[in-house]
Design a protein around this nucleic acid. Sequence first.
RNA 1: GCCGGGGUGGCGGAACGGUAGACGCGGCGGCCUCAAAAGCCGCUGUCCGCAAGGACGUGCGGGUUCGAUUCCCGCCCCCGGUACCA
Length: 817
Amino acid sequence: MATEERDGYSPSDIEEKWQRLWDERATNSYTLQEIQSAEDPFYNLVMFPYPSAEGLHVGNIYAYTGADVHGRFHRLQGKTVFAPMGFDAFGIHSENFALKVGTHPMDLIPSNVKNFTRQLRRLGGMYDWDHSVDTTDPAYYKWTQWIFVQLFKAGLAERKEAPVNWCPSCMTVLANEQASSGACERCGTAVEQRRIAQWFFKITKYAQRLLDNLDHIDWSKKTMKAQGNWIGRSEGAQLHFPVIDASGDEGGLSVEVYTTRPDTVFGATYMVLSPEHPLVDAVTDDEHRATVVAYREEATRTDLVARQRVDKTKTGVFTGGRCRNPATGEAIPIWIADYVLMEYGTGAIMAVPGHDGRDFAFATKFELPIVRVMAAPEHDADTPLHEAYVGPGTMVNSGEFDGTDVSESVAKVTDWAHGRGWGDATVNYRLHDWCISRQRYWGPPIPIIHCGACGAVAVPEEDLPVILPRVEDFKPDDSGVSPLARVEEWYQTQCPECSGPARRETDVSDTFLDSGWYFLRYPSTDFDDRPFDPEITRRWLPVDTYIGGNEHAVLHLLYSRFITMVLKDLGHLDFEEPYDVFRAHGLIIAEGAKMSKSKGNVVIPDPIIEQFGADTFRTYLMFLGPYEDGGDYQPQGIQGPFGFLHRLWDTATSAESGEPDPDVERKVHQTIKQVTEQIPALGYNTSIAALMECLNTIRADGRVAKRAEIEPLVPMIAPFAPHLAEEIWQRYGNDESIFDGANWPVCDEAKVVEHTVEVAIQVNGKLRGQIPVAKDTPEDAVVAAARSDENVARYLDGVEERRVIYVKERLVNFVVG
RNA sequence: GCCGGGGUGGCGGAACGGUAGACGCGGCGGCCUCAAAAGCCGCUGUCCGCAAGGACGUGCGGGUUCGAUUCCCGCCCCCGGUACCA
């Protein structure tokens, strides 16, 4: 079916025509030489998609269109805009889908990629398809593996046994970021705890730098906030609590705790260890051993969702052991409880029930002593606590510190503890090391060879890539190892160092490693012998503008920053932040919810594009609301932009020659000013509104437009409706693409100025009239005219005029009383 | 709980502290048509009024100001993120 045609504007015909011409003329792709010599490079990047079998839905299209508008605008400004597109095709998404439909991912991915490519072309995206990436292509993942090797050699990749999140449905380990609320982000199944040997990237070494750099990159605020929170720096102190025996003697052991409130140490009436804490056995006495062991086993078995529920009733058992509170000298009992997490801090806490809600709940349940050590002015030292008090105040029941204000208490107590040898100021981060191994099939094999004699050895770079073999039975199992561990002929190999028999690592790497560096690859895809060419990288990177969804605020965006920093430290890059500017686009809401497959409210774009054309659909999506806020998808609203583009076409193709009307010309220049400011700031909806208003002025009262009036609108609509703009531009006698040949219109400030303005007249701030006033009329003349306005005069009659406020060419306000 | 972002007509949304509701959807009326669709023109925050005009209006309550959707204080609600993080 062809798009609806009216007045000779046939979207389907001109869109097909221009998509073909862009290909034939290589309008949007660059040769190696062009990449190497671009004078004014602008790297416009959008997050690449995972090529699902369903294709792109309207939510995806919204993201890509907004980024495309941005790129096309900068190109019209004269920049050499590089806008590549690729496919993040490895990973559990693809593999699970392949398992579901019973097709091998190696067969599935190419057809999905083909479909995505078709949709993106049909949308009119300005992509350089000569510089595409597919993360499943050995020519790509060769370098993904190379990056792993670089980290391994730098000591930033290590294998260790660790409690990990295990998804019993996907049968794999997940990163903390993929199981952040205790459920697998892929399938929603509750994750379990397992101890498995895993590969980790030591991202925690970079925690402070990742945090500090947030101060000097230009990113959407919400993204930086989310990332800052995720890194989760907190300042406090590590305190040492000596373990004592029944007679009160110290035996050399001590429990280390981390606290952000060392100043409340006088109120620490008991200790709590995480059930997994290594000292549990040592502090437990014989009388309590059986209950402690039982509790610990129970805690380990409990999945993380159930265990980490905030509203869960506190549980725990007494070990029989005691510590000495180093501040008070008193012996306090040591408990174990699953509300203390081994992964954070030291895995042990000093419990201050008077001033911590969790400790209060626990102490209340188990009838442990609660002591007030912080008091607000309305309290005294003995005011009973009915809940934990966490507000401001001064220290009480704290020996020499009584009376110290909370503003300085932390520092003073930390110093004191340090001086006496039982405390140190410390910083803690919530960020964990990045668990990078996956016991799955569909990913790049981790390029490591395990040798009985030499240990873990990196695959030599000249042997990369380690090709993922085609395995028909790639279903994961419960064994805790990858399906590749069933392929003996693949994993059996020789040690690169001693040539002895050795075994390949059978885990594959996390998808987020694939996407951790893809932006480096795009400009350098012409080279097979290097991941990214140094000279090209210097010219094109960091990315000028990166656009994507905020759901990646703590995953992809953090990992790719980390990888970039590491590559800089290893001398491969000369910058450490990959994206100068990041903008998170908003979400498309349909039927009151984010458009997503799981919500069942997905709208397929293809039929809409078929009916109205890509230009209309693009313009409609960008008109819905502020790009960074997203928009509410209401199908009937497309009629507005559809009619607008038709009227624009009609006006442009029937325009006459001749001098522009001065009033119309003023409107045009005001529009140029507005649109030129708003498009780069992603103010797409208001830019389109301004263009609509301008066209309405040009066409007012059915007048026939002058070519000079309508002509500036053609490049201005081009980012939104590129095909339409190209066609009109060509009909105006130009051979080149508008994106190469047109100059963005320049606003002539002199032409913007209004000659007559409507001045509002207020009396006591209430609008009582308005009068037309010629520009540059002196204030007293305006005020006199305002005063003589019939309606205004009624309000000024018989009252005392106290003041007159005059805002030049805007309003007069008479203050009376 | 904490961290973000919001609450403006029937709807999506506009508004450097200066005429609230631009632009668009929807609705109403008209032109064109045998008719319909499309297109074009006009009206469209609520209430009072024939009109001129007036009152009320940007989640709620205060405040600053000649003037507040906008700034400040205190609440309520919605959306997103995050969470026994000590």
